[in-house]
Nucleic acid binder design. Structure first.
Length: 117
DNA sequence: CGTTTGACCCAGC
DNA sequence: GGCTGGGCCAAAC
């Protein structure tokens, strides 16, 4: 068995976020699901906030289930997220991303092989 | 300690 | 599209 017992919930979340491809986005709830924490979307935001900068996570690729940026519109982090997304080719209109076009849809096999827990 | 907060989500109007 | 109520629960107070 893999090391599921020594991987903390935060580490699992950080790992899932780390494998979201450039130019794609995922949602808090989806990240929670993939990390084995269904129903814990809220905790994903907590974990991202607590993530060490040294991990250099692509946190900007995580938005809400409606395709919208979760930060208050016009706030500094909101603006930063829009810029980061646009810099990698993701279209953002009024704080929203068209999920049908940019949502990350990993195939199961690739996903399993890229998750160490 | 008890209470509130929050980068959330979904079903059901 | 919007609003509500309920679920979620670690962190911050």
């Amino acid at each position: 068995m893999l090391n599921s017992h020594n991987t903390s919930p935060k580490q699992k979340i950080w790992h899932i976020v780390s494998i979201i491809p450039e130019g794609k986005v995922s949602s808090y709830g989806k990240v929670a699901d993939l990390a084995g924490l269904p129903g814990r979307a809220r905790y994903v935001s907590t974990a991202l906030k607590a993530a060490p900068a040294s991990l250099a996570l692509p946190w900007h690729r995580v938005i809400n289930s409606q395709g919208k940026i979760a930060f208050t519109e016009g706030s500094d982090p909101f603006i930063e997220q829009v810029e980061l997304l646009r810099s990698e080719g993701v279209t953002v209109v009024r704080g929203r991303v068209i999920l049908s076009e940019f949502e990350w849809r990993p195939d199961i096999a690739t996903l399993v092989l890229s998750i160490p827990f």
